[in-house]
């Protein structure tokens, strides 16, 4: 049944496309790509754009220097008014301030769904930030957590380093050494405009996105 349908569909396609390229990779390489790949901003301006975009999405953004990171995380956790947090596998221990309850996800013994669902927030690192669209990219590697960890808790605190921020989407793709198996591109908290195009924040994903931007490139964070 299915096997014969496969053949039937492929036969139809091949009959309709007799001019299919014998050297697919060459034909692909010849495709026009005249669009902007590399951004023109300075590293600093790029980070500022990232912050601006995140704030447009109503994300909270806090700037800090590398040596202030632990204290800044603790302050944000405290400021959130929450107590119980999920820590993904590979999250640096020093990010997990002692005064809070941590549910730690381990590679070999991962947290059950009910534990994640009952947590009030999650703290993660990120793979990349894309300034042009204010996008945070997770590849769900160590420190970034399994996909479910950044989905069920209502509050997501994400640590992003200035050195991870690129200006354009194509720059992000050029930073991937090989295609990742899992990606989540997050551009603001979950939202809907399905009722009269009125934008409502927070439908099913985390309703609150909190970002700490670590100025790890020697640049000074502007005060505000």
């Amino acid at each position: 049944m299915s096997a014969s349908s496969r053949q039937r569909i492929l036969d139809r396609i091949r009959a309709a496309t007799p001019a299919a390229a014998p050297q697919l990779a060459e034909a692909y390489a010849a495709l026009p790509r005249e669009y902007v790949r590399l951004g023109a901003m300075s590293a600093n301006a790029c980070v500022e754009r990232m912050i601006e975009r995140l704030r447009e999405y109503d994300a909270e953004v806090t700037r800090c220097m590398p040596d202030e990171l632990e204290a800044t995380i603790a302050a944000r956790l405290k400021g959130s008014g929450r107590r119980v947090f999920v820590a993904p596998a590979g999250l640096p221990a020093e990010w997990q301030a002692e005064e809070f309850v941590w549910k730690v996800d381990k590679n070999l013994k991962s947290l059950p769904v009910s534990e994640i669902e009952s947590a009030e927030g999650v703290v993660t690192a990120a793979f990349c930030g894309i300034a042009d669209s204010g996008t945070i990219v997770l590849h769900h590697q160590a420190g970034e957590g399994r996909r479910i960890l950044t989905l069920l808790p209502d509050w997501h605190l994400c640590v992003l380093r200035a050195s991870q921020v690129v200006e354009t989407l194509p720059e992000y793709f050029s930073r991937c050494p090989q295609p990742p198996a899992l990606v989540t591109w997050i551009s603001g908290p979950s939202a809907t405009a399905d009722i009269e195009m009125t934008r409502i924040k927070g439908v099913h994903g985390p309703r609150f996105l909190d970002v700490i931007l670590v100025f790890d490139q020697g640049s000074q964070p502007t005060l505000n």
Binding site: R53, S133, T135, P180, V183, S187, P189, G205
Partner: peptide, 8 residues
């Protein structure tokens, strides 16, 4: 600029 969530 991007939809809130893109998953792959």
């Amino acid at each position: 600029r991007m939809s809130p969530y893109t998953s792959l």
